[in-house]
Structures are given as structure tokens and as C-alpha cells.
């Protein structure tokens, strides 16, 4: 016993290995089964991927650190369901790399904010939150309306997303830039391609009220308006029970 420990300590590597052995088990056991969980969760057939414009909006949401104050995860508690809507399902953030569940609600949860307010409300709220909610503590994001959205590299974004597992097609990747424009310009020829690739239900309109150019505000509002609406799974009782085994 003594000799064994003596060697263990003398080499220091013994301590290293023991620390790794003790330390890695917990994470492994909790994380590993989540990679096989797809087998038990019913797929939501209507689940669609983000359009290039919505993905760009999501990246702005990340860039500005919105997740620091807004969660996107409605818990299975009565008051949360009453306040925000049906509780969030795992499948709803299936394509979220990374997830934006958040950890703090300085502002309200946004998991189902899509469709709750008009585009105009969102734009006014971003420019000065206190114009529409007098006691709001949110910073102003007026510059979003001035910044032109960078769309050139959206194809690369979709490609990287596909590499991590989001089912974007070659066609979606090739047309990413045109689709971003098309989604904000309903009268243009590109608008049809968006509906064709991402579904008829895709919201195609000038989100910031100005169809002339694609701004970061367009992307941001497009993203906010799709939150909670990529699939109806959470609203349909059948799928809910399938996942409510938890």
C-alpha cells in the first residue's frame, strides 16, 4: 500500500490520471445519453430551418448579447405557460447552434415572441424601447436600422451550419444571399425562391418598413418574428405527450 502510493505521488502522473478519472465521469454520463436521445423524441415533421435572413438576425441577437437578459426556454410551470405560451420542447431548438436558452430574465422570455407584436412595434422598440414601454430598461438599438446587413458570406454561414448538422440543401446554400434579399422584398423575383425553399408559411415582407435595402433591423425583426414558429409541435397535444415522458 505504502509503496504503491509512494510511486503514485512520486510521479505526479498518478494524481493527474486520478483527477481525470474522477472528474470526467459525471459529464460523460450526463452528456453521452443526450446524443442518442433523438431515438426517443418524435421528430416534428413540420420543423424547418432558419432562412438566411433569420439566421443573420439570430447572429445579431448573439452579437449584441441579448441572451444575457432574455431567455428562450419556457419551463414546465403553470405560470410560465400562462405568461409565455406552451412550454418549450427539445425539438424546437434542434437546429440552434448554439442554443440560446439563456439563464436570466431581466426582460421577458422570447421563446414564443414571434407574431406577438407587429413589425412596426419591434422596430420602434429597438430604436427606443421607452417609446413603447416607458419603464423599459433595455438599451437602444437604433443603429440596427442604419446598418446594411452583410449578406455576401451567408452561403458560408449555411455551409458551416450544414457541417454541424443542420439540413441545408445545396440550393439553399447557393441562393443564400438572394434569399436574404428576397425575404425582405415581397415584390421582387427573389421572394418566390424563399417560399419555395423554406415553405409557403415563411414570412416575406419588408420587416423594417423599407423594402429598398436589407438592414440589420430587417434580419433582427425577421428572427424575432419566427421565434417559436419553426414548428407547431409545442401546440399539438400528440407530439407533446410523446415528449412529455420527461
Amino acid at each position: 500500500m505504502f509503496g504503491f502510493h509512494y510511486r503514485l505521488e512520486r510521479s505526479a502522473m498518478g494524481l493527474v490520471l486520478a483527477v481525470i478519472a474522477a472528474g470526467s465521469v459525471g459529464g460523460l454520463i450526463e452528456i453521452a445519453p443526450l446524443f442518442t436521445i433523438d431515438e426517443t423524441v418524435e421528430k416534428a415533421a413540420d420543423m424547418r430551418v432558419y432562412t438566411p435572413l433569420e439566421l443573420a438576425g439570430r447572429n445579431i441577437y448573439i452579437r449584441e448579447g441579448c441572451y444575457a437578459c432574455h431567455s428562450q426556454m419556457i419551463r414546465t410551470l403553470r405560470d410560465e405557460v400562462d405568461r409565455y405560451g406552451p412550454y418549450s420542447l427539445a425539438v424546437e431548438s434542434q437546429y440552434d447552434h448554439p442554443m440560446l436558452w439563456g439563464s436570466k430574465r431581466t426582460g421577458p422570455d422570447l421563446a414564443r415572441v414571434g407574431g406577438k407584436y407587429s413589425d412596426q412595434w419591434h422596430v420602434a422598440h429597438m430604436i427606443n424601447p421607452r417609446d413603447v414601454v416607458p419603464v423599459s430598461k433595455m438599451p437602444r438599438y437604433g443603429w440596427l436600422a442604419q446598418n446594411t446587413l452583410e449578406t455576401e458570406d451567408l452561403g458560408l454561414h449555411l455551409k458551416a451550419q450544414r457541417r454541424v448538422g443542420v439540413p441545408y440543401t445545396d440550393e439553399m446554400i447557393a441562393n443564400a444571399q438572394a434569399d436574404a434579399y428576397g425575404q425582405t422584398a415581397p415584390d421582387s423575383e427573389h421572394a418566390k425562391g424563399v417560399a419555395q425553399r423554406y415553405g409557403e408559411a415563411t414570412q416575406v415582407r419588408a420587416f423594417d418598413g423599407d423594402p429598398g435595402r436589407v438592414t440589420e433591423m430587417d434580419a433582427m425583426v425577421a428572427y424575432l418574428q419566427i421565434l417559436g414558429r419553426l414548428t407547431d409541435a409545442a401546440h399539438s397535444p400528440a407530439d407533446k405527450t410523446a415528449e412529455a415522458k420527461r
Binding site: 465521469v25 459525471g26 454520463i29 453521452a32 445519453p33 442518442t36 431515438e39 426517443t40
Partner: peptide
């Protein structure tokens, strides 16, 4: 086999 149930069963007991 490494289906979900066996992985979960292992995770729940081994620890």
C-alpha cells in the same frame, strides 16, 4: 447494443 435505453441504464447505475 448502444441504443438510448441501454446508455441511459448504464449512466444511471454506473455512477
Amino acid at each position: 447494443s448502444f441504443d438510448h435505453d441501454s446508455v441511459v441504464a448504464f449512466a444511471k447505475s454506473f455512477g
